[in-house]
């Protein structure tokens, strides 16, 4: 045992000088790391800002514990004591279908225009120049938030459901075009080549190869956008006076301060969202094989 140990030490000692040199070299060569430095600085800055802001909040004699308690009581009244006062459940469903109508129209018009311009934006079906121009234009469309689009059109069309549909259409168009053109680009270039070799022209290739190959993606994306548009239509109903369930929600909360009604409307919207989700997954399993 002892002999073994001594041999080990002897061996280690014999390499010691070399390893120290290597270690020194390693420490020396370790370069200044920009990324980790930036991350450290950011974290420290955030920490300082957080502490500073908590010190300087204007709490207006707010007692945190009471505030939390009151909020919870409000939530309980809202969701467990939900009831309608200013309109009936049938009227509520009518308003929800109005909101769904806005979302549907916006998805339909946005989707159809996104399909055709998406073909021009797909690099395998278009030229590089056209594709880049369309993509650039559309990223501008997409950069503007939906509500802002609605307000922009509210200026020219006037507040109401028309402005909501047009505004939502614009953002849906920008969103779906990106999704569609990327689905089109998934198609193997060889397939396009093969149909070209058969003498097929551009439209024939689009409808005989591109659409069948990407149909399930197109449906999935369109349905996701429909769900998003429904939620946006609720928000826009309040913000741009477009009507529908969003407007009732706005009235119940900001005008009548009736939190029970807010709760009831929230449940109604949630129910519709769940139904949409279930329908979309049904459609997806049917079409996406």
């Amino acid at each position: 045992m002892q002999i073994q140990e001594s041999i080990y030490h002897l061996w280690i000692n014999s390499t010691k000088d070399k390893s120290v040199d290597l270690l020194a070299k390693y420490n020396e060569r370790k370069p200044f790391n920009k990324t980790s430095f930036a991350i450290k600085i950011t974290l420290i800055a955030l920490l300082i800002l957080t502490i500073y802001s908590f010190y300087t909040f204007d709490y207006k004699n707010l007692i945190i514990i009471d505030a939390v308690k009151d909020t919870l009581i409000n939530m309980r009244t809202m969701f467990f004591g939900a009831s309608l006062r200013n309109f009936t459940i049938l009227e509520g469903i009518r308003q929800v279908s109005f909101t769904l109508g806005i979302a549907f129209l916006a998805t339909l018009t946005g989707g159809i225009s996104a399909f055709f311009l998406g073909l021009l934006a797909a690099q395998n079906l278009s030229t590089k120049l056209v594709s880049n121009v369309v993509k650039g234009f559309v990223s501008f469309v997409r950069a503007v938030p939906t509500v802002l689009w609605v307000l922009i059109f509210a200026v020219s069309i006037g507040l109401g459901s028309t402005a909501a549909v047009v505004g939502l259409t614009f953002h849906s168009f920008g969103y779906l075009l990106k999704a569609f053109s990327e689905s089109f680009e998934e198609l193997d270039h060889g397939v396009i080549e093969a149909l070209t070799a058969c003498g097929a022209n551009w439209w024939q290739i689009v409808f005989q190869a591109v659409v069948p190959s990407s149909l399930s993606y197109l449906l999935a994306w369109t349905f996701i956008r429909f769900e998003i548009n429904f939620v946006e239509a609720v928000a826009v109903g309040a913000a741009a006076g477009a009507g529908g369930i969003g407007f009732e929600l706005f009235m119940a909360s900001a005008r009548y301060f009736n939190i029970r009604e807010v709760g009831a409307i929230t449940f109604l919207i949630l129910a519709v969202a769940i139904i949409l989700e279930l329908t979309s997954s049904r459609i997806k399993t049917k079409f996406i094989k």
Partner: peptide, 16 residues
Amino acid sequence: LHGRLGYKNTFNGSLG
């Protein structure tokens, strides 16, 4: 049948 597309006009070919 895609092999026949070269013989078809745009409308008939696109709709198959």
